[in-house]
Design a protein around this nucleic acid. Structure first.
Length: 479
DNA sequence: TCGGAGTTGATTGT
DNA sequence: ACAATCAACTCCGA
């Protein structure tokens, strides 16, 4: 075939195991590898902090260099994606746009818009799944159209599908030979921007350098230690150890600098050579399957990343506190290097007992958790050096140290370091009650619907506004 | 319909 | 430091 094709990179910033790019090359005589840097789209759909911006730019630069080595290049075009695409399709006489299929609503909407544009301008659109182990639709189909909501059930469905497909061969210079690259003028005009071009600090502070090259190196490094790979057990890893106790590959998977199928099958090979190996959910393969689990559920759940309109999520009337939200935002969300729509939302749903995990009385206390897993507080001493002179007794609760002790540690709480945002005891107790109320409410409505269907009259005499009653009363009424 | 199980708890007692 | 106990909700499979 002889398409003039734009391959539109969104995730999938790699040349190994890239089915869509391979299909693009094989069906085209001219290929434009394009990344559209749509600042409006990126800032509204994804919440990118500087750390991730650096990672993205490094990944694009790495992709550009790899494409150059194969006789092509990456064109990074800034502007609103629809306008950019419209113009390029016209100028380059494009007959096909290829892109990886993704599960996020904002990426799906983008694909739908591109398909509309294709109808209008007369180009074909090809999208293949490259970012997950399976096509999530197949899992949904086998589960009766619904996403499996427990890991066990999910594994069962996967067992019906068999192993994920093998990775496709890496792209080589040969693949590009029958395909004309963009002219040198274009490469010059649409260079990968520098951080300064986007008004960012020039240097990244992160030791995780973005890009397929670095990702593959890290992957290989981990796979050399066969013992570590085969005995890996997630609950035995330490979230606050100074040396990472997990692979640290998640940022590379989140942008598709690494292929999960490649990792999966490399692990399978190592498992096959070993006498014993750990198993899902705690094994390394099990971690990839957790990712897959959350991708699958997210792909079939509206508003997966919020509470409102999310059918899986317990609906709680949380206190609205803009100030606290702002503080939480600035310390947590934008700093995630491996932020991923499905996994991040899935884990918050889990950890908050809003979905998946229903034992909501198990509440993690940040102080106790820290003391148990890192009694000396090495992690805090390294990353919050302002606190490093407190003794182990106070390192997790420096506000309980006496004035004298604070002076001695050279850190006055309230001046050099903030007071706690909340009183954990109070707040967790309050939230527990909120959740209990919601659940009681749910039980009652479920009961009512059941009674209705059974045409039972006597049981339908229940207070209509019982949510206003104190909890004890509600409980009694519900009996 | 019922019992068992759920990737990473807290508390109390030894 | 470690083990037993607590307390407890939903989903799934038998």
């Amino acid at each position: 075939m002889s398409h003039h094709t734009i391959h539109l990179f969104r995730k999938g910033l790699r040349l190994h195991d890239h089915p869509t790019l391979l299909a693009a090359l094989r069906s085209s005589r001219r290929l434009y590898p394009v990344y559209i840097l749509d600042l409006q789209f990126i800032s509204s759909a994804m919440r990118m902090g500087p750390l991730r911006w650096h990672f993205l730019l490094q990944s694009l630069e790495d992709l550009h260099r790899s494409l150059c080595r194969l006789g092509s290049c990456l064109l990074v075009i800034q502007g609103p994606y629809e306008a950019v695409l419209r113009e390029r399709v016209r100028r380059w006489g494009i007959t096909q746009v290829t892109l990886d299929a993704e599960v996020e609503p904002f990426y799906r909407e983008m694909e739908a818009n591109i398909r509309c544009l294709g109808q209008e301008l007369g180009f074909e659109v090809l999208s293949l799944v490259g970012h997950s182990l399976y096509d999530t639709k197949r899992v949904l189909d086998l589960n009766g159209g619904e996403p499996p909501l427990t890991y066990k059930r999910f594994l069962h469905i996967l067992s019906l599908l068999g192993d994920p497909e093998l990775p496709v061969p890496s792209i080589t210079a040969e693949d590009f030979q029958s395909c004309q690259p963009p002219g040198p003028g274009l490469a010059e005009r649409f260079r990968v921007p520098l951080p300064a071009d986007l008004e960012m600090p020039p240097e990244s502070l992160s030791p995780w350098r973005g890009g397929e090259t670095e990702g593959l190196q890290r992957l290989e490094q981990h796979l050399t230690d066969q013992g570590w790979v085969t005995t890996f057990t997630k609950p035995r890893t330490a979230p606050n150890s100074l040396l990472p106790s997990t692979t640290g590959l998640s940022p590379y998977f989140s942008l598709g600098c690494l292929s999960v199928r490649t990792f999966f099958h490399r692990l399978a090979k190592i498992y096959a050579q070993a006498k014993h190996h750990s198993l899902p959910p705690v094994s390394l393969q099990g971690q990839l399957l957790w990712r897959e689990f959350f991708y699958t559920v997210a792909s079939a759940t509206p508003n997966f990343s919020s509470m409102a309109g999310n059918p899986l999520c317990l609906q709680i009337s949380w206190a609205q506190d803009a100030e606290r939200l702002h503080r939480w935002r600035t310390v947590f969300e934008e700093l995630l290097l491996d932020a991923d729509y499905s996994i991040n939302a899935g884990n918050w749903l889990w950890l908050s007992a809003s979905a998946f995990c229903h034992r909501y009385r198990r509440i993690l206390c940040p102080v106790r958790f820290g003391r148990r897993t890192d009694p000396e507080g090495h992690y805090i001493r390294k990353y919050l050096p302002i606190l490093k002179n407190f003794g182990s007794k106070h390192i997790y609760e420096p506000w309980t140290a006496s004035e004298e002790e604070q002076k001695q540690a050279g850190c006055i709480i309230g001046r050099d370091y903030p007071f706690p945002m909340v009183n954990h005891e109070e707040v967790s107790d309050h939230n527990l009650q909120l959740m209990q109320q919601v659940r009681e409410e749910q039980h009652r409505t479920a009961q009512l619907t059941r009674d209705d269907t059974e045409d039972s009259v006597e049981l339908s005499v229940r207070p209509e506004h019982s949510e206003d009653l104190p909890r004890a009363k509600v409980a009694r009424v519900a009996e």
